[in-house]
C-alpha cells in the first residue's frame, strides 16, 4: 500500500509540472491552430538560463523571475518575426508554421550545444536531494515546491483567461478569429501575446525542473513530445484538459516506473496516449467541456 501511495504522490507531483508544460502548448494550439514543435526546446533554453544564473549564485526559484520574462520576450519575437510573416504569404497554409517551429527548435538546440557543449550540467542546491516525510510517504522538497508553484501558475492562468478582457480575447480568438476581429480584437497582437505566454509558462516549468533534472541540449525533443501528448490527452486548446492530461501522464509514468521498471516509463505514457486516442478521441475536453 505504501508503495502505491508513494508512486501516486510522485506521479501527481510530476503531473503538476507536466500541466504547466502542457498549458503553454495548448494555449498556442487553441489560438493559432498549430502545434509548437519548439516547445521543449524553449524549456531547455530556460533551464540553461537557470543554470547560468545558478553559477552566479542565483537560486533556481529566483531565476524563474528572470527566465520567464526573458522567454516571454523570445516567444513574442518568434511569433512576430518568424511565424506571423508566414500567414501573410499567399498560398501558405497556417500548418506551414509547424515546420518553422521545428527549425526554430533545431537552431535553439544547436546554439546551446555550441555554447555549452553536449555535456550534462547539474544544478545542486541544498534542497535538490532533500525529502520530508508525511506518514510513511516521502516527498521530495524540490518537487513539492515545484508542484505548488506550477499549480499556482496554472490556476492564475485559468483565472486570467476567464476573468480579464485580454484573457477573454485570447479565448475568443481561439473560438472564432474573424468574429473576434469584428469585436475589435487585434488578433495579430493576440497571437504574439499568446506565444509569449506559452513560452513564459514552459520557461517556468524549466526553472522548476532544473534543480531535480540534468540539463543537456537535446532534452528539448523528448519534452516537446511530452507536451504534445499532454495536449492531445487534454483535448486540443483546453486549459483544464491540459491539467488533467499533465497529471495523467505524470501518474502513468510513475506507475510504469514502479510496477514495470524504470525502462518502461515512456512506454506506459505512450500506451495511455494511444488508448485515449482510440477510446476518447478529443481528449478530456470531451468530459470537462472547457
Amino acid at each position: 500500500m505504501d508503495v502505491f501511495l508513494q508512486t501516486l504522490v510522485a506521479g501527481i507531483l510530476k503531473g503538476g509540472l507536466y500541466a504547466l508544460i502542457g498549458i503553454g502548448m495548448t494555449l498556442i494550439m487553441g489560438v493559432m491552430g498549430i502545434i509548437n514543435l519548439a516547445h521543449g526546446q524553449l524549456m531547455m533554453l530556460a533551464m540553461y538560463v537557470t543554470f547560468v544564473l545558478s553559477t552566479m549564485g542565483v537560486d533556481p526559484y529566483f531565476a524563474l523571475l528572470i527566465a520567464m520574462p526573458l522567454l516571454f520576450l523570445l516567444g513574442v519575437a518568434i511569433q512576430k518575426f518568424l511565424l506571423n510573416p508566414l500567414i501573410k504569404a499567399d498560398t501558405i497554409l497556417p500548418e506551414n508554421q509547424v515546420p518553422m517551429t521545428v527549425g526554430i527548435g533545431m537552431v535553439l538546440t544547436e546554439i546551446v550545444r555550441f555554447i555549452f557543449s553536449s555535456d550534462y550540467k547539474y544544478i545542486t542546491t541544498t534542497y535538490s536531494n532533500q525529502t520530508f516525510y508525511f506518514g510513511n510517504i516521502s516527498f521530495s522538497s524540490a518537487l513539492t515546491i515545484a508542484f505548488v508553484i506550477a499549480i499556482t501558475f496554472t490556476v492564475a492562468m485559468f483565472f486570467f483567461l476567464i476573468k480579464t478582457d485580454l484573457g477573454r480575447s485570447i479565448r475568443a480568438t481561439a473560438q472564432d478569429k474573424d468574429a473576434a476581429t469584428l469585436m475589435g480584437v487585434n488578433t495579430g497582437r493576440i497571437t504574439v501575446i499568446t506565444f509569449g505566454l506559452g513560452s513564459g509558462l514552459v520557461a517556468a516549468a524549466g526553472c522548476l525542473l532544473a534543480p531535480v533534472y540534468y540539463i543537456f541540449p537535446d532534452l528539448g525533443g523528448p519534452f516537446t513530445a511530452k507536451a504534445f501528448i499532454i495536449t492531445i490527452l487534454g483535448g486540443l486548446g483546453s486549459t483544464v484538459g491540459a491539467i488533467f492530461g499533465g497529471v495523467t501522464l505524470g501518474l502513468a509514468e510513475s506507475m510504469g516506473a514502479t510496477y514495470f521498471g524504470m525502462e518502461y516509463e515512456d512506454i506506459i505514457g505512450l500506451t495511455i496516449f494511444v488508448l485515449v486516442l482510440l477510446f476518447l478521441p478529443g481528449g478530456f475536453k470531451r468530459l470537462t467541456k472547457i
Binding site: 478582457d165 479565448r171 472564432d176 472547457i290
Partner: peptide, 16 residues
C-alpha cells in the same frame, strides 16, 4: 458567436 463562451461573456466581448 463564440460558441464555448456564455451569453454574458459574448456580450462582454462586444464591449471592448
Amino acid at each position: 458567436l463564440f460558441p464555448e463562451m456564455s451569453v454574458e461573456e459574448n456580450l462582454i466581448m462586444g464591449s471592448l
